[in-house]
Amino acid sequence: MQFALSSSPHLDKTQSVTRVMGTVLLALVPGTLAMFWYFGWGVLINIGLAIATAMAAEAAVLILRQRAPLPVLMDLSAVLTAWLLALALPPLLPWWQTVLGSAFAIVVAKQLFGGIGFNPFNPAMAGYVLLLVSFPVTMTRWLPPDIVSGTSLTLADSLHIIFAGSPPPGMSWDAISSATPLDQMRSELLQNRMISEIRESPLWGDFGGRGWEWIGNWFLLGGLFLVWRGIISWRIPASMIGALLLVAGLFWAIDPDTHPFPAFHLFSGGMILGAFFIATDPVSASTTPRGQLVYGALIGLMVFVIRTWGGYPDAVAFSVLLLNMAAPTIDYYTPTRIFGQRDRHET
């Protein structure tokens, strides 16, 4: 009788890459809906554009590499990359910039390095940084949350702005766009204004940017869901947020007039999204348990440094990319203490 042969363990596998990526996508839904709620159709249009571009780009590269595209597309990693990129983009970004960023993320940052599992940098953040340094004007032209501006753009208006590149007749950029709270904080601090003055702006909510703080909460919910499901480890988000709060708290305690309170850092930009969804991208992050703590903490620190003294208002993307480079070194110096190894607590 002929039997199937395989190496142990023989039990059916419990997990698959598709399921991991799918779970992360699911966890993004509440935060994404919150963004839609505050920033309108542009958010969803960006996501749709980015995903379509990513899938097409990935399929094209795979065909060029003479591999079957379908099994790879099925792992949903390209969808996740595109989705994360789109969340980081201003909601009314011209369509071709979204397409360019998404294609760059997939083709250059991911597939040229060998595809899933081989990219040293987080593809979504690579795409974002490419756009940010190439198109600083459009990339910093955010919308105020509609609770601030009181007006909300219709689907047609949004489509018009994104595809035509200019506001529909009767509207001007000044009327519909605004800086992000982080951007505003930065530019006004540069003009030597006090935190208490800056905070009088309608962009500010209870502890972060208005609207932003709620978006952060919803992403936090999704992130905690991922930790609970065991998809991501608690170490990277905890150490990243912890380090940021610690150092921000320190500076705030020293000089609360020129350093915003710590919660502001957490709830005004991409910090929550970055901590739970971007820095935790397993391929480009540190993988040893102690290494993850170091990696997360250094990202948190770097975010504060760049936000406070750097040239860009938000810093999650740069910090993640910088630490991506350091991840292999961190792993090398933080091996686990294996069972029965005599170095630390010996019985």
Partner: peptide, 12 residues
């Protein structure tokens, strides 16, 4: 039996 092997995503 034998599964299709995919690249490691270093998920840990």
């Amino acid at each position: 039996g034998i599964d299709d092997e995919r690249p490691c995503i270093r998920c840990g």
